[in-house]
């Protein structure tokens, strides 16, 4: 569904990513693990086109998207949920969803506000509330719902558990599993290993802009040395 090869990226003159290679198959939940500043967010931003890569190939369903603009990539069925949530604070919940709305796609689940409110019952109860007047957990739900309105076949989730209360984190994990059930491909970046275990099928570990490890979650479970070296909190 989604594959990345030889991705290099920089902010100004600071080289951040070095030859990143990743892939995610249809219906798979893949986690990109790493610390603050390891390059997780930069990887996701490069994939969605917010940061123009120095080099490398990004393929969405075998089609190269590395030269496209973010809106074109989004319309090809790739959704992006940013770390800082970036809710439109002046817009209501319904208006936020409206901004995300795109045409129906044959190869991806079709979302309407009604269906989304089944997945996120809290949002259904505050349809006219301004984005700026929601709690962190509610905003996190809204930012995912807003992206789903684009009917994506795959989504990028940047640190969805960051700064959330434990109960909300649990809810978030359930949501991601539900999206997998719908057939969505999910690439999620995380620092929280427990959360990663709860949602992911496979993991990559990124450190200082290099992919250091890749394997299934159960392999990672049994590999204490890798966890210790790259992830010890």
């Amino acid at each position: 569904m989604l594959s990345v090869r030889g991705l290099n990226a920089a902010y100004g003159r600071a080289h951040i990513l070095f030859d990143i290679a990743l892939r995610a198959s249809k219906g798979e939940v893949v986690v990109l693990l790493g610390r603050n500043g390891a390059g997780k967010s930069t990887t996701l931003k490069s994939i969605i086109g917010l940061l123009r890569p120095l080099s490398g190939e990004i393929l969405m369903r075998e089609r190269s998207v590395s030269r496209l603009k973010p809106y074109q990539i989004a319309r090809l069925g790739l959704g992006y949920v940013p770390e800082e949530r970036r809710i439109f604070t002046d817009l209501t919940v319904m208006e936020n969803l409206e901004v995300g709305r795109q045409a129906r796609r044959e190869d991806a689940p079709y979302w309407t506000p009604t269906r989304l409110f089944e997945l996120f019952p809290n949002l259904g109860r505050m349809q006219d509330r301004l984005g700026g007047r929601m709690s962190g957990g509610e905003q996190q739900m809204l930012t995912i719902a807003r992206t789903l309105m684009g009917n994506p076949a795959a989504i990028l989730l940047d640190e969805p558990s960051e700064g959330l209360a434990p109960v909300i984190v649990e809810q978030m994990a359930l949501t991601i599993r539900a999206l997998k059930q719908e057939g969505l491909t999910v690439l999620v970046s995380e620092q929280n290993l427990r959360f990663a275990h709860a949602v992911a099928d496979r993991a990559y570990i990124i450190e200082k802009g290099h992919i250091r490890y890749s394997g299934t979650m159960s392999d990672l479970e049994s590999n204490g040395a890798v966890r210790e070296q790259y992830l010890s909190v």
């Binding site: 969605i48 086109g49 917010l50 603009k69 973010p70 809106y71 989004a74 319309r75 992006y80 940013p82 970036r86 439109f88 604070t89 002046d90 817009l91 208006e95 936020n96 409206e98 901004v99 995300g100 795109q102 807003r146 992206t147 684009g150």
Partner: peptide, 18 residues
């Protein structure tokens, strides 16, 4: 809605397909 969204964060609006 799109105009107000882009006024607040045009990059995010783009990432949503606008």
């Amino acid at each position: 809605s799109l105009v107000r969204a882009a006024t607040e964060d045009r990059e995010m609006a783009g990432a949503l397909g606008v």
